[in-house]
Design a binder for these strands. Sequence first.
DNA 1: TGCAAAGTATACATGTCGGTCTACCTAGAT
DNA 2: ATCTAGGTAGACCGACATGTATACTTTGCA
Lengths: 183, 183
Amino acid sequence: MTLSAAERLTSTAARLFQEKGLSRVGINEIIREADVARMSLYNNFQSKEDLAMAAYAAMSQARREAINAATAAAKGPKEAILAIFDLAERLAQAPSFTGCSFINLAAHLGDDDERLTDLVRRHKLGIRLQFEDLVRALGAPDPVMLGRQLLALWDGAIADSFIENDTAPIRAARDAAAKLVEA
Amino acid sequence: MTLSAAERLTSTAARLFQEKGLSRVGINEIIREADVARMSLYNNFQSKEDLAMAAYAAMSQARREAINAATAAAKGPKEAILAIFDLAERLAQAPSFTGCSFINLAAHLGDDDERLTDLVRRHKLGIRLQFEDLVRALGAPDPVMLGRQLLALWDGAIADSFIENDTAPIRAARDAAAKLVEA
DNA sequence: TGCAAAGTATACATGTCGGTCTACCTAGAT
DNA sequence: ATCTAGGTAGACCGACATGTATACTTTGCA
């Protein structure tokens, strides 16, 4: 049971977009790496943007599931929140780590790329609500604000970790998250 | 006294790079907007990368100075830190706000763009040290870590504010910064 | 066996990119 | 008056981008 052309395209595009950013990956590179004919791309997707939608949607789902797995293994909401930051630290140790693919994607889009912009927004909203649910389970007085604060720490730490090429920002953010959650 | 071609190029490029991102702005657009001949660009700069270095260096200095102005007007270190987040909120209200130009720049670079990558790293280090100096003046027990935490909040809040098109993430981050600084 | 769906291979159209070349034109200082 | 530094105008180049057209091959199934 080999993978179909569409499946190979989506996963290959996801990997390349993650590593290099949307506008630094061309059609030619994608089909070469996916070992697929040029026309197979355009028979399965209407355009590069369509392929990008599929690739980033898959990335978004994978990230959500990784967070769910990390929280499910934790013994309580507070431990779950810390586990999410531990997940970030693990991701940042990968040699091909380039920060948050969705923040990076937003940096490549223009006013006309409404569908991809919306995908980024929905992705971040989803992560934020995951934090919000956890702090609500803890009985935090303002779960919406605390959810926003944890998301900012997460996003900022991942961006800084990429720029510094060091996981120290993520460990610091984890510590800040613990303090905010305890208060 | 009209501006020289080099000055017009640098400021125009800075504005366009900020608004659209490095790889979405072409030479042709820059020289058109700067009202400068094509050859004037290459007489003053060796390449687009050189112009980008000048433009982003100017942006970095401007941002550092804006932060210094905000902290100088504050009556103490804690107020200075909060003033930096108020500055972020003000910046995010501009119609052309697109998040942090340096995080965005990093998202456009490849392994070969060493000079611009270094510029991003130095810029973030500078901001981090500004936070670090302020918390050290407050007598914080671990100023390096707290400086990293404030930077993560700042960067994450600015990114999220751009994605959500709302300043709520910045106000939440300001509140988190206050709590961390007090503890 | 035969047919339809999926995939392949490749040439091509069209546009934009960063960058170079040549020739010309000032404005100001000596 | 002339020379020079800085600026201008526009044709041009090679490389690469997304996307299309056409004709051929494979594969699974009825």
